[in-house]
């Protein structure tokens, strides 16, 4: 198919290209594949960024498993589970939005992008309440770790054990950097939404939606691992 495209383009006036096709690509298909491969390479750098934190988690957990099991009781699995469902729904709406624009349904794409944005915002609001609830009772990362009083029925003096602050430092850094990725994703979805409302996407051209979707699914996958590792086990 690429062969026929080359022949067709060479025999044509070059101004006949679609508006989105840059001159250094042979075809829209090649441009799309190149962009997607570049996105996958970027996602690998993201995976390696998070892998450093997952390795830190594993090393400390192997050294102090009982402290990790105890400290995880202070994380509310209901809020973590709610956030998991919210992110899964947003991943679905991104994937379904791409399905819609592939069928040239611009309104369908816009609706799905709005739902995705709402899910991301819900996730951050839940995260805000989790963080502030812990800060209020002195559960801070690093040297500031000084839990006092009672938190959700737990007497916090039982949880102020050696290495508990390592667990919460890892918790704040991992969920914090993940949260930054959610915020970046929200910015990207606002940008996509503006472009979609202006009618820039069609079944012929939706590369930014596809690539942003890949990013968002990776953010979802990171949370799929963070939820059981931090909240459940």
């Amino acid at each position: 198919m690429a062969q026929t495209t080359v022949a067709a383009l060479e025999s044509q006036d070059h101004h006949a290209h679609p508006a989105h096709l840059q001159h250094h690509f042979v075809s829209s298909e090649q441009q799309f594949d190149a962009a997607k491969m570049g996105m996958w390479l970027f996602l690998i750098t993201e995976i390696l960024l998070f892998s450093g934190m997952f390795v830190a988690y594993t090393v400390y957990r192997v050294w102090h498993p009982e402290v990790f099991e105890l400290s995880a009781e202070l994380l509310d699995w209901k809020l973590g589970g709610l956030n998991t469902l919210v992110l899964l729904l947003s991943s679905f709406t991104v994937a379904y939005g791409i399905n819609r624009i592939q069928h040239n349904d611009r309104k369908g794409l816009i609706i799905n992008l709005v739902i995705t944005l709402l899910c991301a915002a819900t996730f951050m609001v839940v995260k805000y309440f989790e963080y502030t609830g812990k800060f209020a009772v002195g559960i801070f990362p690093g040297g500031g770790f000084a839990p006092t009083g009672v938190y959700h029925g737990h007497e916090l003096s039982h949880f102020d054990v050696p290495y508990a602050s390592q667990f919460f430092s890892i918790y704040y850094v991992m969920t914090g950097i993940h949260g930054v990725h959610v915020l970046v994703g929200m910015g990207i979805f606002v940008w996509l939404l503006v472009k979609a409302i202006r009618g820039r996407f069609s079944s012929e051209y939706y590369t930014p939606v596809e690539l942003s979707g890949l990013y968002w699914h990776l953010v979802d996958i990171i949370w799929i691992f963070l939820f059981p590792l931090l909240y459940l086990i």
């Binding site: 679609p18 829209s28 994937a95 069609s202 051209y205 459940l232």
Partner: peptide, 28 residues
């Protein structure tokens, strides 16, 4: 012509995968 070569994942598949993910979240 570009999009005609792309695979379109059917909505039905996406819904089933989402349902599977929710089920696995409850299971874990």
């Amino acid at each position: 012509m570009s999009a005609h070569g792309h695979h379109i994942t059917p909505a039905r598949t996406l819904v089933m995968v989402f349902a599977g993910l929710v089920f696995l979240t409850i299971l874990t």
